[in-house]
């Protein structure tokens, strides 16, 4: 057990320009992503159509089946699905905290916008930091959370996890990468 790397991390050394390109090993075939995609399509269909007679539901089943057959493995990869229910529950628990954080930071930006001496208060700057998150999905959620929290915009995320963030003033950039990174890391179980 020397090499105990979890298989949901991407080996970025494989993409180094000094090696010949090797395509990553295809994930093992599993019906779960297809079932998941079908369920998402079907729920969206039911909400959007609003008609529950046999004809419309049959149309929805056919359409969802076509979408699932052509692009069922795009929404989720099979190797990511292992701890999925727990991850979804933790993500749902993360959302209220994120909403509260968004609201608090929105108030901060509102104060800046309506402040008469706004030009003296703002101090735009670029911040660079290295994240310790290893999972692609976690990095994605983290980058989007940074962008949603007002005062900070993710400008660039390198493939090795270097974030470039534009912050509107000193105070909004200070908390990065603090509590938010820990919480996002807790979602994927790191």
């Amino acid at each position: 057990m020397a090499n105990t790397k979890p298989d949901n991390t991407v080996d970025y050394q494989a993409f180094s320009p000094f090696k010949p390109f090797e395509p990553p090993t295809p994930p093992e075939k599993s019906p779960l992503p297809y079932v998941f995609t079908f369920c998402v399509c079907m729920i969206t269909w039911l909400v959007l159509s609003g008609k529950f007679d046999f004809f419309h539901i049959a149309l929805g089943i056919v359409s969802s089946a076509i979408v699932t057959a052509t692009s069922g493995d795009m929404l989720l990869k099979a190797r990511r699905i292992a701890g999925l229910p727990g991850a979804w529950l933790r993500f749902i628990a993360y959302v209220p905290w994120l909403l509260f954080e968004i609201f608090r930071a929105n108030m901060h930006v509102m104060r800046l916008v309506f402040h008469p001496r706004m030009m003296d208060l703002i101090d735009p700057r670029m911040i660079r930091f290295q994240t310790r998150l290893d999972n692609e999905m976690a990095r994605f959620i983290f980058a989007n959370s940074i962008t949603l929290t007002p005062g900070t915009i993710t400008v660039y995320v390198s493939i090795l996890g270097k974030y470039t963030v534009h912050a509107i003033d000193r105070a909004s950039g200070q908390g990065l990468p603090g509590e938010m990174e820990d919480r996002v890391g807790a979602i994927v179980g790191e």
Binding site: I102, N106, V109, V113, I122, P124, P150
Partner: peptide, 30 residues
């Protein structure tokens, strides 16, 4: 509507393109 108003005024008042994105992208979302 209050947040929308803040977003619109922020777009007008902030000095450059990057800082204008802060009210535009997110006060509008809120």
């Amino acid at each position: 509507l209050f947040f929308f108003l803040g977003g619109a005024i922020g777009i007008l008042r902030f000095p450059d393109f990057y800082s204008r994105l802060h009210p535009a992208g997110k006060l509008d979302t809120m």
